[in-house]
Structure formats: structure tokens, C-alpha cells
């Protein structure tokens, strides 16, 4: 069955995303993909789309009307909630949208959620991926009011309340110092690891501003260097930005430290105005935390849908690569 959904309203950061695009960083194209890979993996695990693609929703929310057909969907991520024709279906849910019905997704804590439909999207690929680079719109594309989204081979899995993961810890955010920590005075490095910072409400898919004491670089004379998500970049006035999924692939501002992968999505999901601290760790410790983080996510995915056969789902879909590794490690 073919399903057509009309976008009635969409926040400016709403986009089609798959697991991300590999191999094009060298051409200035970031990986893109979901800001919160676990929310994405959960939405795909619950909705089982045939396309490995979900719609990423941010603070502005999303309202869709089903013009034709009937289709299941899963909504996962932070405290985002859904309503079908005004009937609240809560956060972390699998449900069905029928002809003429209106789905409204609202922010209710956190910044990012994923909405996956049980069908195959007609959104375009670019360079082998539907991950959308928001700035250029290349990939599956931004989702905007007035668009009509089409899904083929639509299915309607049983509605279910999904097992939302445990609340995120408020431990310090792990960082590995560098690659340009030498551009900063010892006092600035000390402040980075001891002073309180605030996750500001100023963010998009490229990065998030983190407020705190200004960490002014001693010099700004570096040729542009490559960058990755998690890099903490400082401008000349000492303002810090954490790079995210659609980051610039190179930059000429020094990067004092890199947020460890286990804590990237946690930092991106913090409500605007939340206080945080950083803790410098070794790369070995960061790797150990990543292993534990992925193993915990695998466990959470296993519990997500009652009676779900996780291994089968994971093998059929391109989810977070590390989740499968962690699962294998966990079972042997």
C-alpha cells in the first residue's frame, strides 16, 4: 500500500536521516545522520521501515496529515510526545496513522527525536545515503510545511508502548584533551576541567554553543584542519562550540578537546540552560566507556519492543555499527 503524508507544519531542523554517509568527509561532506543515534536505532527497531530512514524532529515539532493509506510509525527520543487527532499517545510509542488522521509531535524535554514509518520512503539518495546535510539540503532532504511524503509497502505493526531508556546520568561529560590544547594557557585548560558550563539553547545540526568562562586561544594562526563531531572549537573571543552531525569538515579555529563518543548525544540532548562539567579522560578510558555505552544501548534495544527478535532486526538493517559489535561481544 502506498501512503501519502502532507506536512502541515515542521520546525526548521526537521530532516530525513539514515545512519549517515561514509567516505565523503574528504569532499567537504560531513557524515550527517541522526544527532541521537540511539533514538534513531530505537525508532527503526520498533517501526521496521524498509528504508533505514527516519525523520529527525527538533524543538519546532512536526505535524503531518495522512492523505491516503494507513501506516505504522514509531516515535523515539528524549521527551517528545505524539498526538493522533488530538489523542495523546505519549513518548516512546509505536502507533498507527490512518487516512485523514493528523499526527502532531511536540517537544517535551530534550532536543532531538526520530520518527520512523513502517514503509519505504521515496526520499532521494545522495552519495549512497539519505542522510540530509541541512545547510545544502542534499540527501533525503529537509522536511518542510507543504511537502508530501510518500511511503510504499506500508505496514501497520501492533501499537505498543516502547520501553524508554533510563534517564540520562548527569555525570560530567567526558573529553579527551586536544588536538590543539597547546594553543591555550594552562589556566584555560584548568578552567575547562573545573568550571561550570551551560548547554545553551543556541544549536543546530552543525553545532551547539556551550556557555562558560571565555577560553581565549593564545594564538589563531593555524591553517584549516579537519574536524569531527565532538570537537570543542574556540573562536578568538573564547566562545566554545561543540561540533555535531553536520559539522564543517575543516576549520581554522583551535579545538581544545574532543567530547568522547559515549557522551556526544547526551550533551546534544541536554535542555537549553542545563549546567554541565567536563572531565578529561585518556583515550583508553574513553574507549572503555564507549564499549559500556554501546552494550547498554544494545540491552535497551533488546527490551524496547515486547517479544522482539532483536538479532533478526539488527541484521536486516543498517543501524549503529557499534551496537552489533557490542552485542556480539556481549553474547560470546
Amino acid at each position: 500500500m502506498t501512503v501519502r503524508l502532507r506536512v502541515e507544519a515542521a520546525g526548521p531542523l526537521t530532516s530525513m536521516q539514515d545512519a549517515g554517509r561514509r567516505g565523503a568527509l574528504r569532499f567537504g561532506v560531513p557524515r550527517s545522520g541522526p544527532v541521537d543515534p540511539f533514538a534513531f536505532a530505537a525508532a527503526l527497531t520498533a517501526a521496521e521501515p524498509d528504508c533505514g530512514t527516519a525523520i529527525e524532529v527538533s524543538l519546532g515539532g512536526l505535524t503531518l496529515t495522512c492523505l491516503e493509506g494507513e501506516i505504522g510509525f514509531a516515535l523515539c527520543g528524549a521527551g517528545f510526545t505524539g498526538e493522533v487527532d488530538g489523542r495523546m499517545i505519549g513518548a516512546w510509542q509505536r502507533a498507527v496513522l490512518g487516512p485523514g488522521q493528523r499526527l502532531r509531535i511536540r517537544h517535551g524535554g530534550g532536543n532531538w527525536a526520530c520518527l520512523a514509518f513502517s514503509g519505504a520512503t521515496t526520499a532521494p539518495h545522495w552519495l549512497g545515503s539519505r542522510a540530509t546535510h541541512a545547510l545544502s539540503g542534499l540527501g533525503g532532504g529537509m522536511v518542510r510545511a507543504g511537502d508530501v511524503l510518500e511511503y510504499h509497502a506500508a505496514r501497520t505493526p501492533e501499537p505498543a508502548a516502547l520501553a524508554a531508556p533510563a534517564a540520562l546520568p548527569d555525570d560530567p561529560i567526558g573529553i579527551v584533551l586536544g588536538p590543539q590544547e597547546r594553543f591555550f594557557a594552562a589556566a584555560a585548560l584548568e578552567q575547562l576541567c573545573t568550571a561550570p558550563f551551560t548547554a545553551s539553547g543556541t544549536f543546530d545540526r552543525m553545532g551547539r554553543v556551550l556557555e562558560g568562562p571565555p577560553l581565549v586561544p593564545l594564538r589563531l594562526d593555524m591553517p584549516s584542519e579537519p574536524a569531527l563531531p565532538g570537537c570543542l572549537q574556540l573562536t578568538g573571543d573564547g566562545r566554545m562550540t561543540m561540533l555535531m552531525a553536520d559539522h564543517q569538515t575543516t576549520g581554522g579555529y583551535p579545538k581544545i578537546a574532543t567530547v568522547i563518543r559515549a557522551d556526544l548525544a547526551r550533551l546534544a540532548q541536554l535542555d537549553g540552560g542545563t549546567a554541565l562539567r567536563f572531565e578529561a579522560v585518556s583515550t583508553e578510558e574513553a574507549t572503555a566507556r564507549l564499549r559500556r555505552h554501546l552494550a547498554a544501548q544494545t540491552q535497551a534495544l533488546r527490551r524496547l519492543v515486547p517479544a522482539a527478535n532483536l538479532a533478526e532486526r539488527l541484521s536486516g538493517q543498517n543501524l549503529v555499527g557499534g551496537v552489533i559489535d557490542a552485542l556480539d561481544g556481549d553474547e560470546t
Binding site: 561514509r22 568527509l25 584549516s224 584542519e225 575543516t250 574507549t287 555499527g321
Partner: peptide
Amino acid sequence: LVETIPAYCSIMLEYDPLMTTQ
């Protein structure tokens, strides 16, 4: 090795820390 990014005078090597060590 996952991906490389060559730049002016440096190259970034991204790797999977679950498959290899730094």
C-alpha cells in the same frame, strides 16, 4: 580505519576503536 580527511598540512584518520587501538 573508517575514513580519512586530508587538509593543508595534516590528515585526520578516523578509526573504529572497537576494532583497533590508537
